[in-house]
Nucleic acid binder design. Structure first.
Lengths: 143, 143
DNA sequence: AGCAATTGTTCGGGCCCCCAACAAATATGA
DNA sequence: TCATATTTGTTGGGGGCCCGAACAATTGCT
């Protein structure tokens, strides 16, 4: 077996928050995908918010997760195509109200435990206090 | 001016590390793109490593930044197309050695200050100690 | 009634990433 | 040395995630 030479010099790269955030997020994304094959992390978050706020508008939803309205369209189109979300025209006929379909509710119920397991696994190298600390620092970063 | 109703209920979403990481990374990405128009965060990292390890192989580079070899191909193709990176066949004729072109070196020199300013701006809401703490916790997460 | 603002949408663009399969080249071991 | 295994870069197809400009329909405002 051939042994690789010296490890690469990393320079300032490990000191850049953006780089470290990418590595961390990628690791989390990987674990999520491995444990929850039915849906992607981003779409799951959307479903979560619709579940907690039945009838919510696309714009409000987009704002809540820091996305553009135009981005939300595609996500919801996909979720609707999968039969997980229903769009209903609001009394303000410009708006669409969003609801989970029975299928959507069933999925969320089925996923709850697996998501919690995923979160435990992801944070397994952290103590409870460290996890809180991390969440807090990330919140500070976002502002 | 119309006032939006109650803020959305977020449910378990803010407690998910993946979600918070996405928000944070997106904020950092935005600031990077705004302050460094010439190149993307990912490509910048690649240039950094090539600069610090002249002649490095594509595979070793991919491994260093947790990417697949096949992913690296496209990135390097783009960087080569922009005249920032040069590929030379190694003595092991399976490999390509990677070097920055003069133009690549010039770019990196020109970007150094702006990247540092970007990093300061991104971490501006954090104390120096908190920033170190965050980097450490992210490192723990990745393992 | 007329102008301004909001909502959802389309369209085009970009970044980031993976897997399977493959040819060329090198390493390995009988 | 020759056959086999491994490594490297590559192509091709796929997916996730995100934005801005421009537009029609609808509503708010005056």
């Amino acid at each position: 077996m051939k042994v690789n030479g010296a490890p690469l010099k990393q320079g300032m790269l490990p000191g850049l928050l953006g780089y470290r955030l990418r590595l961390a997020q990628q690791a989390v994304f990987r674990d999520f995908s491995a444990s929850v094959a039915e849906i992607s992390p981003g779409r799951f978050g959307i479903l979560l918010l619709i579940d907690a706020n039945p009838g919510v508008t696309q714009s409000r939803l987009a704002q809540a997760v820091s996305l553009e309205r135009s981005t939300m369209v595609g996500v919801l189109h996909a979720l609707q195509g999968s039969g997980l979300v229903e769009r209903r025209r609001g009394t303000d006929r410009r708006t669409n109200g969003l609801w989970l379909t029975p299928r959507g509710h069933a999925l969320m119920a089925r996923l709850k435990r697996r998501i919690q397991a995923h979160e435990r696994r992801v944070a397994s190298r952290l103590s409870a206090a460290e996890r809180e600390q991390l969440l807090g620092l990330l919140g500070k970063l976002t502002g």
